[in-house]
């Protein structure tokens, strides 16, 4: 490999590390109390995508409209269960940023394991980092091996 290529590889590695790990200026919003009503039925939540700001005190009011459902928040490990007619509340502090799935944790029929919603705490920073890495990877590969001169031995 030429020196140019080595430079490119080192540059790509550094850029990748920056994209993957660089701390970003966090947009600070004053923490608020948020109450979100979520209806659960076989096999969906409505609304299925929730958005809160980091630091918010979030209360999810779970209203089940057919059978007993639960709501377990990935990453936070907190959960709540609701029977129809008995709204329950789950309160937690949204102190981790990112996108987390929440799912039913009371077996509720065939598609129970796929009953999924999402809660976005701030921006989904890991997704942006991953998208950045993907584009970097493909660009670097294209530049690194620009025009294959001759057919290589198979």
């Amino acid at each position: 490999m030429s020196r140019k290529q080595w430079f490119l590889i080192i540059f790509a590695g550094l850029a990748g590390a920056v994209i993957a790990f660089a701390p970003l200026p966090v947009r600070v919003t004053p923490p608020a109390q948020r109450t979100l009503r979520v209806e659960a039925n076989q096999f969906a939540y409505s609304p299925a995508v929730l958005a809160v700001n980091p630091g918010d005190t979030v209360t999810i009011e779970l209203v089940s409209t057919d059978v007993v459902h639960g709501l377990y928040v990935d990453g936070y490990g907190v959960s709540v269960t609701a029977d129809p007619g008995q709204t329950t509340r789950l309160t937690f502090t949204a102190d981790r940023s990112g996108s987390f799935r929440f799912r039913c944790n009371v077996t509720c029929g065939a598609l129970h394991t796929f009953m999924i919603g999402k809660i976005q705490v701030g921006s989904n920073i890991l997704l942006w980092r991953a998208l950045g890495l993907t584009i970097l990877a493909s660009l670097v590969a294209i530049i690194l091996f620009p025009r294959p001169a001759k057919a290589q031995a198979a």
Binding site: V63, S64, T65, D66, D83, P84, G85, Q86, T87
Partner: peptide, 19 residues
């Protein structure tokens, strides 16, 4: 009431339960 009635008659009794 909460366990047996509220699903239809509503948690506050207003007849607006989830069913």
């Amino acid at each position: 009431f909460a366990q047996n009635c509220a699903a239809c008659h509503g948690e506050n009794g207003a007849g607006n339960g989830v069913f």
